[in-house]
Design a protein around this nucleic acid. Structure first.
Length: 257
DNA sequence: ATGTCCTCTCTTAGAGGA
């Protein structure tokens, strides 16, 4: 099974690029973030026309997450993280697809830090970690993927010395990611490419893509049952260079059936 | 501080978020 994740940065503006990428790479499952569209504006028909079923949780202007599948086999489990009924952001959706639990997440950016947005990010991270522990303890095969807005190590930043105070790279953020990983998750792309520079995001500013001034912030976390089935993984780097592209590139993994 | 892109509105320009 090939599973992909893609922060589209606005599914309405990104629809031509999204459809082209899906048709060229045909992932079995695709997790999308930053729909930036209300529930009723999701392009369900356009996706169905190219063979994808979908469950999504939209929100006007901001956030929004979706899980796509080439089969009508998406069993939605939840569309919010537990732990805060007051949290109105659409940042998490979870479904079982072909027996694999797939959590699709858009972790808060958190800038400027310090400040209330950074506090929200860390709180959200704690809720994710609590929920991830339950999934891990369930013993089921689980994929937690999406835009984590975290560069886990210096290798994941084009210029680490410039990012120390940023919410995506502050010690508290990296520590939170480390705490989550210590439950026993496998960072799929890093697992297959130890020591290799991999980026999944290039800012729109200052020709970041042309200069390869990138960040690795979109991740695939695998439960132990799936680590042994991981056969390949990569980033669709070229998609970032297409006309009207997102600032993120799609990322994918291949699991043995 | 700046750069760019996307979305929304007290809309065709500016603000907020990333």
């Amino acid at each position: 099974m090939k599973i992909a994740t893609y922060n589209v940065n606005g599914i309405t503006a990104r629809l031509p690029v999204l459809l082209r990428w899906l048709q060229e790479t045909t992932p079995d499952v695709a997790c999308l973030q930053e729909l930036k569209a209300p529930q009723e504006k999701f392009p369900e028909d356009a996706l169905r026309d190219i063979g994808y079923f979908a469950k999504w949780h939209g929100q006007k202007s901001w956030n929004g997450v979706a899980i796509l599948s080439r089969k009508d086999n998406i069993q939605e489990v939840r569309r919010a993280l537990p732990g805060d009924d007051e949290d109105s952001h659409s940042r998490y959706i979870e479904a079982i697809v072909d027996g694999i639990t797939i959590g699709c997440l858009y972790l808060p950016n958190g800038n400027p830090a310090p400040g209330p947005k950074f506090e929200y990010k860390l709180k959200w991270f704690e809720r994710l970690t609590t929920h991830a522990a339950e999934l891990m303890n369930s013993g089921k095969p689980v994929v937690l993927t999406g835009d984590y807005n975290v560069m886990p190590t210096e290798l994941d930043v084009y210029k680490p010395e410039r990012w120390g105070d940023d919410a995506l790279f502050r010690p508290e953020t990296r520590q939170a990611f480390h705490t989550l990983m210590s439950q026993g998750w496998t960072d799929a792309l890093r697992e297959l490419n130890p020591g290799v520079k991999i980026y999944t995001f290039w800012d729109y500013f200052r020709n970041a893509y042309g200069r390869d001034a990138g960040l690795r912030i979109d991740h695939f976390l695998l439960s132990p049952q799936l680590k042994s089935k991981l056969v390949d993984a990569g980033v669709c780097r070229d998609v970032r260079g297409w006309e009207k592209s997102s600032d993120h590139a799609p990322v994918w993994i291949q699991l043995r059936d």
